[in-house]
């Protein structure tokens, strides 16, 4: 092939592939604005964290309100969604305080931040994040909030993945940037190691006690911690992303089925006996579940057929019954009021 012929072929290839790439981007951009038939309807409105008997979550339905915090009546969660102007990757609220972990594509790298909002979703404080948002929780009193982000290494050669969990006092804005600085008692003995990761905090009503996952040396533990004493103690093994029941007697959590495999089952553990009970959900759940009341938990599962969205499901918290769809195309559920 002569040089000019080769350049001609290259030009044609650039045009064809460039056209295809542009078409893909435009189609995706157009689809981002289009609502999908059969999806729940969404209307712009006002979402207040203090509204009683309502459920809030992040809208996963395609269209202009994708990613927005929406609310629905607690009794009819599949009714029309009221969309706020707040978009998040993770959201949780309690007692009129909300935490929104937001990740937007910056110019050079992902721009991640945690935004603390008041009942009217006005920004009270914003914190830059070190990595991709993962878990977010607000204490029942609204006085504390915690979040976990993934701090990834660079692409190649990173046999390493690290989490960072931060607790913030929303009254004083005092920041505990990294739970890894807390003292650890593991199986009754003081423990220190460089390979310590915390994730999935859940708070008690007493504004001091919290539960979380500790990962170290290839094992995960349920820890009970104290914010004032800056310490944690392990209670049980193979517990991830605990969520404390409203009566504070049990946690629902994900239990790894097999070492090394990314498969988890939802279990409930009685905190007095540490006995655990698998729930009726047989699919692998990778979420920090939410207690809708003392008998029911809700969690997200990848939507079938739609790769980039999740559905919310509920299951009884005592191992009985069967999973039921709460609402499609949604994530990060939270009770309002």
């Amino acid at each position: 092939m002569t040089r000019s012929r080769r350049l001609l072929v290259l030009a044609v290839a650039v045009l064809l592939l460039g056209g295809l790439a542009a078409a893909l981007v435009l189609r995706s951009a157009a689809r981002a604005e289009q609502t999908h038939e059969g999806d729940p309807t969404v209307a712009r409105g006002r979402v207040l964290l203090g509204q009683p008997n309502r459920l809030a979550f992040l809208n996963g339905a395609k269209g202009p309100h994708r990613g927005a915090l929406v609310s629905v009546p607690g009794q009819t969660p599949q009714a029309e969604r009221t969309a706020s102007g707040l978009t998040c990757q993770r959201f949780h609220a309690s007692a009129g305080t909300g935490v929104c972990l937001n990740s937007s594509p910056g110019a050079l790298a992902q721009d991640n931040k945690a935004v603390i909002v008041d009942s009217d979703l006005r920004t009270l404080h914003s914190f830059p994040l070190a990595g991709t948002p993962s878990r977010a929780r607000v204490a029942p009193s609204g006085h504390f909030t915690a979040w976990t982000v993934f701090v990834a290494g660079e692409s190649y050669g990173a046999a390493f993945f690290s989490t960072r969990t931060t607790i913030v006092d929303t009254r004083t804005w005092a920041v505990e940037p990294d739970l890894e600085k807390f003292s650890i008692v593991l199986d009754g003995r003081p423990y220190s190691s460089g390979d310590v990761n915390f994730w999935g905090v859940t708070f008690s009503k007493d504004d001091d006690t919290f539960y979380a996952t500790l990962g170290t040396a290839g094992q995960t533990y349920l820890v009970k911690g104290s914010i004032s004493r800056r310490s944690v103690t392990t209670l049980a093994q193979n517990v991830e992303c605990p969520s404390l029941s409203p009566d504070e007697t049990r946690i629902v959590y994900k239990k790894r089925v097999m070492r090394g495999a990314s498969l988890w089952r939802e279990h409930v553990m009685d905190l007095r006996t540490l006995r655990d009970q698998p729930l009726a959900e047989k699919r692998s759940v990778d979420d920090q579940a939410l207690w809708l009341d003392d008998r029911t938990v809700a969690y997200a599962l990848p939507a079938e057929g739609a790769p980039d969205t999740t559905d919310l499901w509920t299951v009884p918290a005592d191992g009985s019954g069967a999973p039921r769809l709460l609402t499609p195309a949604a994530s990060s559920p939270t009770r309002l009021g």
């Binding site: 990757q89 390493f160 993945f161 990778d286 790769p307």
Partner: peptide, 22 residues
């Protein structure tokens, strides 16, 4: 990819780092 796994697919990429080394 990290954002896609977490935000898009709702997965936890924790185990993914170990795989990367392998």
């Amino acid at each position: 990819l990290p954002l896609y796994l977490v935000a898009g697919l709702g997965l936890s990429p924790l185990g993914f780092g170990a795989l990367d080394g392998v």
